[in-house]
Design a protein around this nucleic acid. Structure first.
Lengths: 175, 175, 175, 175
DNA sequence: TTTT
DNA sequence: TTTT
């Protein structure tokens, strides 16, 4: 289904809790802000300078549910997805572009926080963590897109189908 | 030098000829517009729908020289680099962001057009091709940044150093 | 379905025509011998020395059919798969191990020979090419495992299904 | 320096402590046994069956020193390297082949155990851990290849140079 | 031989 | 804007 290669591999940490939305069909769509760290040697000073790159990740389907349920601010995660640049309109009516890493059925997400409070693969929601109301809403059920989530507007891109244009993000600047 | 992973792998075709610039130090900086193709099955119609994703690639150093010299509109190429989002100011004074795939000494570029005239690994510039004046300017020499290219402003990011902000792109909208 | 990452990405050329087998279920299993080239600078002489690495690739399912049909000795190809080490018995009864790159439904194969006689995505078998009798045998049909191929014995490892034990390779030394 | 792509990306856990050797030049060469886990659905039973794949990793240079110093049995690690198949002679005089994932200056190694005592990026050797005598032997110094390590025989493959044949592994079966 |  |  592809006559090219478009692959992104990231390991980094979440800058904040995942944002979970649901499509009209009840499929989870999760956004992550992921930081990858690098350091380089300054040519003037010879000092090692840290540099953080931020990535916007969008997960669909099963992997979105797991991400929304178990990842939290600070979580370390492996992401494999593809690059996608989305066009949107600024308040001034001008076109803007946002590049995201899309993780769908062809991608992968691996939680890298082992043992202990941060999550992992353990079943059940760890205590002491803010629960999101629709967390366990089974994909495909109609009860999922509850209040605050009508915003949805995503189609589930399973096996190649693409997310539809999003017209009602919380604010005007999605990145 | 890294406490994370930030890797992009692409195979696609150039939408246009490479754009070559030179830094004040005479190092080549090359921009590519790369298309990766995918097709997905439309859920309504069951039709296979082609979809093209465009990527902005920036190459530095030796690999930039090779890209600028041998790649052309339509060339098929393998790219391995990292994601980097650059902030710039629109004419309206507002912040804009552009995400690029940066190919530096840690990255890779492979030409995938095997046929004769289009390039490959062959030495020497093929005949019948528009030559760019500063093509063979050895990196690090002072003759490189000729008129129209003082604009430079890139530092060569070899082994971790970062590109400096670019303040005088041809136009206001670099993507 | 994975609590780890096991990924291989190769671009190289086939050392010989693909070898196609069929499982008892009529699914294609294709073996490729793939060369990846690299060159390194000899520390004594300073010379650039070419070095070829050979990889054994095994493709299953749909991608196997395409590979068997269109790839030929010399074809350039992109492979994405996973590492798998298989144990087998030498004639002397001792254990041997062979590591292969397995391309199943989670992997990818891209033909990189563009335009012209070498293949590409073109429909129909190019003329003047040795046809293999069972080439177009649809997967899942019983006519596939003809003589010389009962050897099969692979299960298709797509998304979890595993290769069955292989007991009758053509010869004793599969690598 | 390459006319192909040969890349391996793994995330898994060490089956045992790293084995550190030194070349005659005092450069560290470290071997890891890495397990990557996957599970697949059995087609008969419908059960989810776990499957572990074992990988032999060889690290050279700086990354080898870090690996030897901080990784331990059970450590989770990200590995980026290239495939290399090495020929050796069995006791019976017959050729054997072993495929390894080589991590040199072009590769990467990331420790993924964040928790305290097990390593991470912290300076200095954590207490309560078996120290290896030649741990801090600076590369290139003659004191490194102490007893039990004359075996060495590796050249450091920095930037493309290749490991020389190894003729005196501890035992006859290196994998 | 690891890990969850 | 590319390619098949």
């Amino acid at each position: 289904m592809a006559r090219g290669v478009n692959k992104v591999i990231l390991i980094g940490n979440l800058g904040q809790d995942p944002e979970t939305r649901y499509t009209p069909n009840g499929n989870a769509v999760v956004n992550l802000n992921l930081a990858t760290d690098e350091s380089y040697k300054d040519r003037q000073t010879g000092q090692l300078v840290p540099k953080t790159e931020w990535h916007r990740i969008v997960l669909f389907g099963k992997v979105a549910e797991v991400a929304g349920q178990y990842l939290r601010k600070g979580s370390k995660v492996y992401i494999e997805g593809k690059l996608q640049t989305r066009k949107w309109q600024g308040q001034d009516g001008q076109d803007r572009y946002t590049t995201e890493v899309v993780v769908d059925i062809n991608g992968q997400m691996q939680m890298l926080d082992s043992r202990g409070g941060e999550g992992g693969m353990s079943q059940g929601a760890p205590a002491g963590r803010p629960q999101q109301s629709n967390y366990n809403a089974p994909a495909g059920q109609q009860n999922a897109p509850a209040q605050g989530q009508q915003s949805g507007g995503y189609n589930q891109p399973s096996q190649g189908s693409m997310p539809e244009p999003v017209d009602d993000f919380d604010d005007d600047i999605p990145f």
